[in-house]
Nucleic acid binder design. Sequence first.
RNA 1: GACCCCUUCGUCUAGAGGCCUAGGACAUUACCCUUUCACGGUAGUAACACGGGUUCGAAUCCCGUAGGGGUCGCCA
Length: 472
Amino acid sequence: MPAAPNVVTRFPPSPTGFLHIGGARTALFNYLYARHHGGTFLLRIEDTDRERSTQPAIEAIIEGMKWLELNWDNNDKIYLQSEHMPRHAAVANEMLANGHAYKCFCTPQELEEMRNHQKANGLPMRYDGRWRDKDPKDAPAGAPFVVRLKAPLTGETTIKDHVRGIVTVQNSQLDDMVLLRSDGTPTYMLSVVVDDNDMGVNTVIRGDDHFTNTFRQVQILKAMNWNIPEYAHIPLIHGSDGQKMSKRHGALGVDEYRKMGYLPEAIRNYLLRLGWSHGDDEIIPDAKAVEWFNLEHIVSSPAKFDYMKLDSVNAHYMREMDDTKLAQTVAARLSEATGTAPDVAQTAILAKGMAGLKQRAKTLKDLTESAAFYVTPRPLPMNDGAKKILSADAKAMLAALRTLLSDLADFSATSIEASIKDFAGQHGKKLGDYAQPLRAALSGSNVSPPIFEVASILGKPETLGRMDDVLK
RNA sequence: GACCCCUUCGUCUAGAGGCCUAGGACAUUACCCUUUCACGGUAGUAACACGGGUUCGAAUCCCGUAGGGGUCGCCA
């Protein structure tokens, strides 16, 4: 099935902030495509903007990638774009030498005036090429200059994109972009092209916001006579306002999702389905994702992020998790929230409780909150629902129940239920009449897993103790 | 403004001219199950943006309109 040999993809975030959800999806698609073809997935940090790039951001991105388990190749090594700036500059100079680039001595003010004029007159906003054919000798001595691409004036540039199809733009629409800044550093447009080429990247999967840039990049590629990679521009993820999700537009860092209690496998599955499909399949475990992923079924329109759906996917994976492992996670979260870590015995109780708890929760956060009562030290605080249940009548019934339970030898859930059911019948009551007060006493709430199961897991001494607390 | 792209239930999507009286999932409604809440089960509401073509036949192809988005930096 894998046709293209040696597929090389890459994820190139710029370290100006955390790894956000849109970037995570781009990374996922690149990762899956490489894995599907048995190819290589690389991580490149685009830190050429020295002003805005930060080390903490680099670390946050790496942490995010690791949390999502999107492991990159090349022995875990990261390609730092800034380390290759001399190479980028060398390429620009090569283009200068072979006539594919030229020096432009315009000042920033001059360019801004030009743009203002164009905007005011409803003209297309592009560099007008005023230094394209001028002799550099005409420039004032020692004046700073940038290096611009000498882009073709006529003809057209065509991109074959796996999502967009074949798209053509007239070269007259594209201006002579800057390759090298006046301080000699390369621009993004140059750096990506050079790095992709040097890294052997042959498949570029990235956000659709890069689509129009692609035409310019292809022009550089052609000027250098380099191979043009396969392209797949994936539609953006929109916020609820229908606009591109960005760091200031509702996109959260992946770490926030971890805190909210989402599982990495759930995030992966949800993100995969957001913009890609495999028939009616919704739950797509990693192995299937790698097996099935392709570029053909990437959706062509933008998607909105939906927490409800994420919740349901997360709930699915959470229920599949091993109870012991889940209990450890919950214990860790509990200790983070309360400051005291559950001990081994308590963690064991949590593990027993997981089966009943996890089908009532969507996230690890929910799960942790609903599990807390198992290990909360006595006397348990009662929530409003519990207080309401514990009327004088209810307490009287609870007192009777206490005697019943203390005499019960077999403290299994079925045994407790059978005995209470029998007891209720004898007193002309329903099971629920006793179950609710018991629930309040044992869980401190009006909502809990099956209460006889809870009692059994808590054990007889703790159960009776909690009942005594309420009866005091 | 210029250029490019997008448009199927509220949301994510299936759909590659007849399989579509448009399918699935999430959400939502009702009922069943039931010691609470969930889970689960059953049923339901709900969409091809609009207008023209092409064709025996169009959600699917073409053109236009409308709406939305992206890009136009010495940011990435």
